[in-house]
């Protein structure tokens, strides 16, 4: 286990009405096994609920799992909320079925990385290790 991982708090969130939580749960467990501190929101969260959880847990990383196609509506609201609440340095990740054109749009909104089907657990772990904000 990487000792520094323990200091990184990750929120794994399922915004929207989508019930496909296999990926979110597998990722949450893999991140926990990699030594991160993981908070999982559970299903059917509104954007406000996701923002509140991110603020309350003071997370370094927000991972949004969306497989319903509603990312273009949900992600901007969450990004706005995080900004308003002052969580500006958090690493924002999206995972799910996201068309290529939409990935470009999400990145413009400030999403750091989008993981699509076939991405490996290790890729996600490595990405967080390399890019999570270092707070003092």
């Amino acid at each position: 286990m990487n000792v520094s991982n323990e200091k990184i708090r990750v929120l794994v969130a399922k915004p929207g009405l989508d019930g496909h939580d296999r990926g979110a749960k597998v990722i949450a467990r893999a991140l926990r096994d990699a030594g991160f501190e993981v908070v999982y929101t559970g299903l059917h969260q509104t954007p406000e609920m996701v923002v509140r959880a991110a603020i309350e847990e003071d997370v370094h990383v927000v991972g949004l799992s969306i497989l319903s196609g509603a990312h273009n509506a949900l992600v901007p609201e969450i990004m706005d909320g995080l900004k308003k609440e002052g969580l500006t340095d958090a690493l924002i990740l999206v995972g799910g079925i996201i068309p290529e054109d939409d990935i470009i749009e999400l990145k413009k909104l400030g999403v750091h990385m989008v993981f699509t089907p076939g991405a490996s657990l290790q890729e996600v772990v490595d990405y967080i290790q390399a890019n999570a904000p270092k707070r003092t």
Binding site: G16, L17, D18, H44, T46, S68, G69, A70, H71, N72, A73, L74
Partner: peptide
């Protein structure tokens, strides 16, 4: 669609984007 599966109408705030 997801809103229908969850018992929400298309004009519910919960349905936005779905």
């Amino acid at each position: 669609d997801m809103p229908t599966l969850m018992g929400y109408d298309a004009d519910s705030p919960r349905s936005k984007g779905e």
